[in-house]
Design a protein around this nucleic acid. Sequence first.
DNA 1: TCCTGCTATGCAACTTGTTGCATAAGCAAG
DNA 2: CTTGCTTATGCAACAAGTTGCATAGCAGGA
Lengths: 211, 211
Amino acid sequence: MAIEHAILVSLLERPGSGYELARRFERSIGYFWTATHQQIYRVLKRMENDGWVEALVVPQHGRPDKKQYSVADLGRAALTSWLHDPIEPETVRHDLAVKIRGAAFDDPSALIREVERHRQAHADRLAHYLAGEERDFGRRTDSGPYGPDDAERELQHAVLRGGIAYERMMIAWLDDVLATLHRFRDDHFRDDRFRADAPSADPSSADRAAR
Amino acid sequence: MAIEHAILVSLLERPGSGYELARRFERSIGYFWTATHQQIYRVLKRMENDGWVEALVVPQHGRPDKKQYSVADLGRAALTSWLHDPIEPETVRHDLAVKIRGAAFDDPSALIREVERHRQAHADRLAHYLAGEERDFGRRTDSGPYGPDDAERELQHAVLRGGIAYERMMIAWLDDVLATLHRFRDDHFRDDRFRADAPSADPSSADRAAR
DNA sequence: TCCTGCTATGCAACTTGTTGCATAAGCAAG
DNA sequence: CTTGCTTATGCAACAAGTTGCATAGCAGGA
C-alpha cells in the first residue's frame, strides 16, 4: 500500500512507461524504494483501472508500443490524501546486522570479506550520489526568492542529502565493525574451534570519501 | 528466506518461546529486523519440522504451556552456511523520503508536523539505545584478552553502535529537512495554491541528543 | 464484579513481493 | 549469420508478510 505512492511521485516528476519507471527504481528512487518491473506493471494496471493514472499508447519504430503513463486527478488526490495521513511505522531490515550478531557463533573473522564488500558498495553509492549532487545541484544559478518550481528541486536535493548522510554513516560504521572483527583475529581472540586461514591486509581508513 | 536466520541468532543468544521471540522483535533485534508474532510462530513451526530447532514444552502455573525453543545442530549448520554465503542485496524502503519528494506536489509546509513526529521517534529511540549501551556496556570490567564468550558481547555492542549512528544521522537529516521545509514556508515560498494555516513554532536545534 | 491487559499460541484469509518464463523486434559484435 | 543485449510488456506460480479473529486463565483496578 505504498508502492503506488512512489509511482505517483515519480510520474508527477516526469511521465513515463512502466519500463522507464522500472529503470528509475534501479536508480534515483530505487535507492530508498525498491520494486521489480513485474510489480510496477501490475500496480500500474490496477492504478489505471482505478483512474489514478492515464495511459497514452505511443507507437514506436519497430519496437513494441509503449504506454506513456501520467497522473490523473484521482491519483493526485490519492497522493495528497496519503501525504496528509500521519501514519508511518518505519520498518527496517538489515541482514548484515543479523549476520554480525550471528558471527559470534561462527568464526567472526570469516565475516571480514563480506563486510568489506558491503563497505565498498556503500562507498560506490556515495561516490555516485556525490557526482549526481555536483551535476544537478552544483551551484545555485538564481539565488532569488523561491518559486513553486524550485520546491521539487529543493526537496529532491534534501532527499539526496539524506542518502549521502546515510552512506557516510554506513561507511563509518562498517569501518568500526571491521576494526572490531580485526581485533578478534589479530590480537586477542584465540579459540581452537576457529582458525583464521587468510590473513587479509588491514584496510583501516585506507580511503574515505570526503567532501 | 532470512527471518529464519534472525530467529536462529536470537535463540542462540538465549533460548525462548515464540512469544518471547516476538517481544524481542519489538525491542533489540526488532530495531533492525521486524516480525509479527504470527510470522514467528509459523516460521518456528517450519523450523521445528525441518529439525533446525527443538521445542521443550514447559508447563506453567495456570497459563497455557509454553514451548521453549532452542537451536539444533541442523539449525546451527544452516546459520553457518548462511553466514558464509556472500549474498546481500540491501533492500531499503523509506516512506518518508517518498513523502518528502511528493511534498513538492502539495503544500510542503503541511509535512512539517509529520517530519517532526519522526524526528521525535528517532530521538526517543536514540535515548533508548544510549541507555541500553550505558547499562550493558558501560565500563569494561575485565580489560584482559578476549575469550570466546566476549565475542557475542562485543558484536552486540558493534551492532548497537550502528543503531546509535543511524539514529543520530536520521535526527540530523530530519533537522536538515525541517530547515528546508521552514524556508519554503517562512520567507520565500509563496503560492496561491497553498497556504500555511498553523504557524507552528520553529524547533530548530531545540534539543539534540548528545554524547 | 466486570473490564482491561498480559501471557501464550494459533488458524484463515488476504495482500505484497519474487522468480521463472514468454514474446518480439532491432542493433551491434564476432 | 548467429549470438547476445536492449527496449517493452506481461502471465502464472510461488513465497513472504499482514490483519483479523479465537482461545484461555490470571492479575489488578474501577
